[in-house]
Design a protein around this nucleic acid. Structure first.
Length: 622
RNA sequence: GGAGCGGUAGUUAAGACGGUUAUAACGCCGGCCUGUCACGCCGGAGGCCGAGGGUUCGAGUCCCUUCCGCUCCGCCA
């Protein structure tokens, strides 16, 4: 205590709060009759008991007004010396976030005193008696809707952050979504089955979280990246239709829409094709929107092949709420004198109607933006009356200009952006630039929800680091019928029976029809470069199951956090998760992860290397 | 692993050109106040400018290192 001298005559908030704690009472026989959002003029005259927190205190010396808050809203309660002098006097001790119970009567507010901004603004509760249920230290940040506080503070004091109405609404919205999911799938004869959290590491795909086994020293469980294999085994088991609202774990770097633990709505169905899974998922999304938002969504959702998505939007999760589609100019510029275009694997352009007023600075910022995606530069042309303003226009022939003007349907005051190079880079740079411009130029309609299925994904992707093909979706995905021969012979051109569901440019789910024959699954493993022995040791249990009468099956997994984020119009899934982690995967509230005792390590047969934190980075080179 | 933004009172921010005692609003504490509702008025307290090192007569400000939060690339079957 550094302020002992002053503490005696000028109490600080801390001492004051200690003093007030002497007044704390139990509930006793008091029973809450209403919530703080419930009372209206119709309740005038009724005796009520409210319990909640002090949101605002307006102590006039004479009258004291307290805005009481609970999950339901705010109610103004009045302590008046005319009604109960002792009660009024005792209420001076109330401070922000103190917890209280009041008994009193509802009355209509006097003429002209109605607060139209408040749902309960027509009435107030005149307090006849009250109890202090708890004190509170002054909160580290204001518990208000409008408070704009740093995320580190919000996370360190998450239970206070969650008291704010917006966060309360988000968690309640999330609850309504899961309830809609459960009712819809239950009606569709799906069975909710829990699958193991301690499971087997299958180091294909994301990095696993590992859990050491005490009973089997030197061995590890992995936390599931998804219940993929278990749900397939449940189809073999004849469950027919399975779902689970399930936590999944991936030890990869975080993003606004990626947490190390996240929740999937995991679904699998027997004896179905792609169309049936998609139809089921559309009905599910429609149910969510109806129950949660009171909105109709039009069915079926639009569909687009992966090739078309990449061609028109440059990304595999197009935001179709606005235009600015990409135009391929590769062939048109093949013979150009402009070497950058002529020699490029791919040339594409993006037209911003009316974008010519963009300043040099703004264009430079866009260049910096596309550099994130490997672009070296960003060519542009401003369409002005009678001339094209551009650093590159002098390289373009009359024929090329004519072709560009036609292909992009140019008008005065448009600006064109160009990208040339490797196809993947061109698509990534322009596709992401498109979304960036859509946001920056406010081209995206406020309340639109555009669903889209992206279908016909490639089966494989060549991994430059590992020098082998990797499954685009996952290794259990069935090849498309006309790609069966290509799985081993021409993997680069094989397509998958896989589909993603996209909402407003966000991937909110993905699924596939699986390999239900052991032979087909073995061919996939072979194409992925697994030896038969390695396939057996990693996935033998799956192969054996597929040999025991596995039915044709397929399914989908929906990202619950992302769906709720979009419905809540939140900018991060952290805002719809009660206790999320920071970008360094830490919980600022509990301070996890943390060191453990040597006794705990000893039980597990583990020993840390000297300076484990520093040596972790060196593992890759060993 | 990489790029960028940020860290100054309890909170949100200003200060950045190196130069007196580091500002403001809200919050907090005290006083006054019987119709406020983000009450009002008066007064007061509150700071190792994220941390460490350096340059300098002098650093919130310049340089280096480091920690933390956020956005993105890589990564995320």
């Amino acid at each position: 205590m550094t302020h002992e001298n002053t503490a005696n005559h000028v109490p600080d908030a801390q001492n004051l709060q200690l003093e007030h704690q002497k007044c704390i009472a139990d509930l006793g026989e008091w029973k809450r009759t209403h919530t703080c959002g419930q009372l209206t003029g119709e309740h005038a005259g009724t005796a009520v008991c409210l319990m909640g927190w002090v949101q605002f205190r307006r102590d006039h010396g004479g009258l004291i007004f307290i805005d009481m808050r609970d999950f339901g809203g705010l109610t103004q309660v009045v302590f008046s010396p005319d009604i109960a002098p002792q009660v009024h006097k005792s209420a001076h001790i109330l401070r922000s976030e103190y917890v209280l119970a009041v008994r009193g009567s509802v009355r209509r507010r006097p003429e002209g005193m109605v607060n139209p901004a408040l749902p309960t603004g027509e009435i107030e509760v005149v307090v006849h008696e009250w109890k202090l249920l708890n004190t509170s230290k002054t909160p580290p940040f204001p518990i208000e809707e409008r408070c704009d506080v740093g995320e580190n503070l919000r996370l360190a004091w998450r239970y206070l952050d969650l008291r704010r109405p917006w966060m309360q609404a988000n968690l309640r919205l999330r609850h309504k979504v899961t309830q809609a999911v459960r009712s819809y799938l239950d009606e569709g004869n799906f069975v909710e089955v829990e699958t193991p959290i301690l499971t087997k590491s299958t180091p294909e795909g994301a990095r696993d979280f590992l859990v050491p086994s005490r009973l089997n020293p030197g061995e590890f469980y992995a936390l599931p990246q998804s219940p993929q294999l278990f749900k397939q085994l449940l189809m073999v088991a004849g469950m027919d239709r399975y779902f689970q609202i399930v936590r999944c774990f991936r030890d990869e770097d975080l993003r606004a829409d990626r947490q190390p633990e996240f929740t999937q709505v995991d679904i699998e169905m027997s004896f179905v094709d792609e169309a049936q899974v998609m139809e089921m998922a559309e009905g599910l999304m429609a149910r969510i929107f109806k129950n949660v938002m009171g909105r109709q969504v039009s069915l079926p959702f639009s569909r687009m092949t992966w090739l078309e998505a990449m061609d028109r939007y440059g990304v595999d999760k197009p935001d179709t709420r606005f235009g600015l589609e990409l135009v391929d100019l590769t062939e048109a510029t093949r013979a150009s004198k402009f070497a950058l275009f002529a020699n490029a694997e791919r040339v594409k352009a993006l037209k911003v109607p009316g974008g010519a007023p963009l300043s040099r600075k703004e264009i430079d910022d866009l260049l910096e933006f596309v550099k994130n995606y490997g672009a070296q530069g960003l060519a542009w042309i401003k369409i002005k009356p009678g001339e094209w303003q551009s650093p590159i226009v002098k390289f373009l022939s009359e024929a090329e200009r004519k072709h560009i003007a036609e292909a992009l349907d140019t008008h005065n005051d448009d600006i064109l952006f160009f990208q040339a190079g490797k196809t993947a880079m061109v698509n990534a740079a322009l596709g992401n630039l498109r979304v960036h411009l859509g946001e920056q130029l406010e081209l995206i309609p406020e309340n639109a929800f555009n669903f889209l299925w992206v279908t016909d994904f490639p089966l494989f992707e060549f991994d430059e680091a590992e020098k082998r093909y990797m499954a685009c979706h996952h290794p259990f995905t069935s090849p498309a019928p006309d790609s069966l021969d290509k799985v081993v012979s021409d993997p680069a051109n094989a397509f998958a029976r896989a589909y993603d569901i996209v909402l407003n440019g966000n991937e909110i789910g993905g699924g596939s029809i699986r390999n239900h024959s052991a032979d087909a699954q073995r061919r996939m493993f072979a194409a992925l470069g697994f030896s038969p022995e390695s396939a057996e040791s990693r996935f033998g249990f799956l192969l054996r199951a597929l040999e025991q009468g596995a039915p044709p099956h397929g399914g989908i997994a929906l990202g619950l956090d992302r769906i709720v984020m979009l419905l809540a119009k939140a900018s991060s899934i952290r805002d719809v998760i009660a206790f999320p982690k920071t970008q360094k995967a830490a919980c600022l509230l509990t301070e996890a992860p943390s060191e453990v005792s040597s006794a705990q390590l000893c039980d597990l047969g583990l020993r840390l290397r000297e300076n484990a934190a520093a040596s972790a980075g060196a593992c890759g080179t060993e």
